[in-house]
Amino acid sequence: MGHDTAEWVYVGVICGILAWVGADSWYVEKLVDDVPKDAEVIKVTAQQWFWTFEHKDGTKEVGQLHLKKGQPYKFEITSKDVNHAFNMPDWVIMQDAIPGRINKAWFVPDQVGEFPIQCREYCGLLHYNMRGTLYIEDNK
């Protein structure tokens, strides 16, 4: 009975793997945490059960969002009633929309097309249908 070398080696290997997991994800998080300086702000407002997007020039879109390829965007996400989560799975954008808070997310579209926007935090009756569409258009 009692500990022996094998167990210590095993625990050491686990700690090594975990240290790598921690360091690598810290590095990547740091990389994606910085919003580019020239990002254009899009105000995203969630409410039961649709999305409103306000562009820099004040134009508003409901349920759909038109963006330009190659331009960095910063989303300022908030909610009017309950918690929602702004999510574009194809672009790995996911941030909760919480009343009384403004959360940020950013990305640079590098591909033209139509992509789904959805709510990922349970928000009641029509949570499943709180969807929108992202259109990315060519800048040129």
Partner: peptide, 24 residues
């Protein structure tokens, strides 16, 4: 995803990883 700062996330990530060796 609730809008935590980088520091908070790091602290909780380390706290979570620390539980793994014991499970192992």
């Amino acid at each position: 995803a609730t809008g935590m700062s980088f520091t908070e996330k790091t602290v909780f990530m380390i706290g979570t990883l620390a539980a793994v060796p014991a499970s192992g």
